[in-house]
């Protein structure tokens, strides 16, 4: 297999506070290869966005990377500071945020924002930047891009604005895109279009995508592989088909059972008892054990195993035949 674009090894993020240090991300490892979409899924507070922010170097202090390594295209980037990190952002790593309504500067035209980004990273003229800006807007499917380049964000609908945001994230041709809940703030009808757009661009350009979402439907639709996170830790990592059809971690199973998927058509949705622990109260052993129907003494005592691809962080993973 080819060298992964992004490789995270044992990444931990800590936030020191008055009442003690919390670990929103705790020993997470995964790879993303070129042209591949990795879906990172979990409830809010599971640490999925925090991991994304750590990769692009936008953790809000006092949050910081406490342990682990982040490799991008064979270069270690987790210790990069200031200017060095800034040069990577936008150029090597693009990011798409959740809310397109607030992601764009209301006072600058979208053409200005696109050109500005390109001029920062690429050695091109203003004219060239403008031409490329129009091309970038065309590529993300904005009709009449040449006329609309001088429009301001408020003149676009939500879905169109998210297309602009994607164009902005991709305009300096980064090798990795971090998309943090890119469809959550959009109408359902627009969500599928945005996902299709991301998929197409990623295939065409061979960009690696970290798709952060809480929506299993989006994962099923878009992702090649999936990383399930729970309370800051990786619960399960594997091919999307394997994880979705035969989850091995009890949490993934619960998550699947509680998600309405068109293919399944179950009469009644299952729900997981209890709630994910608050980060300052993560239990000893496997963090999921208080809610797990299969929990045994070992789960309460020993931390769940660190995992690699195709495995579940569980002492007693569910065997394939157990799933109905």
């Amino acid at each position: 297999m080819s060298e992964p674009v992004l490789s995270i090894r044992g990444l931990s993020v800590e936030i020191p506070s008055r009442t003690g240090t919390v670990k929103p991300v705790d020993g997470v490892s995964y790879d993303i290869r070129a042209g591949e979409i990795l879906g990172v899924v979990g409830e809010s507070g599971a640490g999925k966005s925090m991991a994304g922010n750590a990769v692009i170097g936008l953790l809000t202090p006092p949050a910081h990377i406490a342990a682990g390594e982040i490799w991008l295209n064979g270069t270690r980037i987790d210790a990069l500071q200031g200017e060095d990190m800034r040069r990577l952002r936008g150029k090597k790593i693009g990011m798409v945020f959740q809310d397109p309504l607030t992601s764009l500067n209301p006072l600058l035209s979208i053409g200005d924002q696109l050109s500005e980004t390109m001029l920062t990273h690429l050695d091109i003229s203003r004219n060239e930047a403008r031409k490329r800006s129009i091309a970038a807007l065309e590529e993300v499917g904005i009709p009449g891009a040449a006329e609309r380049i001088d429009s301001y964000p408020h003149e676009f609908s939500g879905g169109m604005r998210q297309r602009v945001v994607i164009a902005l994230a991709l305009c300096a041709e980064p090798s990795l895109i971090i998309a943090d809940e890119p469809t959550t703030a959009l109408d359902v009808s627009v969500q599928a279009q945005i996902i299709a757009l991301l998929k197409r661009l990623c295939r065409e350009r061979g960009t690696a995508v970290m798709l952060i979402t809480h929506d299993m439907g989006v994962i099923a639709e878009a992702a090649d592989r999936v990383a399930v996170m729970y309370a800051g830790r990786l619960a399960e990592l594997g091919n999307v088909r394997d994880v979705l059809t035969a989850p091995r971690h009890p949490y993934t199973q619960g998550l699947m059972a509680s998600t309405p998927l068109a293919s399944q058509g179950k009469a009644r949705l299952h729900q997981i008892e209890g709630a994910m622990p608050r980060l300052n109260k993560v239990p000893e052993g496997c963090p999921f054990h208080p809610r797990c129907t299969f929990a045994q003494d070992k789960c309460r005592a020993a931390p769940s195993p660190q995992i690699t691809d195709g495995a579940a962080a569980c002492w007693f993973p569910i065997a394939a035949e157990k799933v109905s």
Binding site: R89, G90, K91, G94, F97, T117, T120, A169, A172
Partner: peptide
């Protein structure tokens, strides 16, 4: 939008 501007490496 300031976060996004930072994420674009401006």
């Amino acid at each position: 939008y300031i976060r996004f501007a930072r994420a674009r490496g401006l």
